[in-house]
Design a protein around this nucleic acid. Structure first.
Length: 137
DNA sequence: GCCAACGTTGGC
DNA sequence: GCCAACGTTGGC
């Protein structure tokens, strides 16, 4: 099963907002990048993604679950991009910071480090395990 | 179809 | 708030 990482600016949409959305979850829209779109399209229901706070915090704070596969994003005037639905699953006991990720030689190949602007990223199984352990999940 | 100009993202 | 990196746009 594939793993992912999705980014959000906490002043726009934070982990707390995601938790507040509850079990029903909410749509994850606003993607306007083809590489991110490809990743969204590859997501399957039941797969998990890290929830990363960019700008403020710069850390992975929780895990969300994909609850609805890729479908069109009505807010996109071009009709080219879509979204998935996600719901908060588990908070990390200890958030894993970008600093910690960069400091770990096992994680230096993460997309987060090398292509920091991509907002929806794949995470390898190894990376997933390491970060879960770090985060106390 | 190339490439310069521009806008956006996100770490610092 | 600055600026580097990257994606997108539009003139040619």
């Amino acid at each position: 099963m594939a793993h992912w990482l999705i980014k959000s600016e906490p002043n726009k949409w934070s982990w707390d907002d995601q938790v507040a959305a509850g079990k029903k979850g909410t749509f994850w829209n606003g993607v306007r990048n083809h590489q991110a779109k490809q990743n969204l399209m590859a997501m399957k229901v039941g797969e998990e993604a890290f929830f990363y706070h960019s700008n403020e915090g710069k850390q992975i704070v929780g895990i969300v679950e994909i609850i609805k596969p890729y479908y069109p994003d009505d807010s996109d005037p071009t009709g080219k991009f879509g979204m998935v639905d996600v719901r908060a699953k588990t908070p990390l006991k200890r958030p894993v910071t970008l600093e910690a990720i960069k400091a770990d030689p096992q994680l230096k190949h993460m997309v987060l480090v090398n292509n920091s602007r991509l907002s929806v990223q794949p995470v390898s199984d190894d990376e997933w395990q390491i970060i879960c352990a770090e985060g106390g999940v």
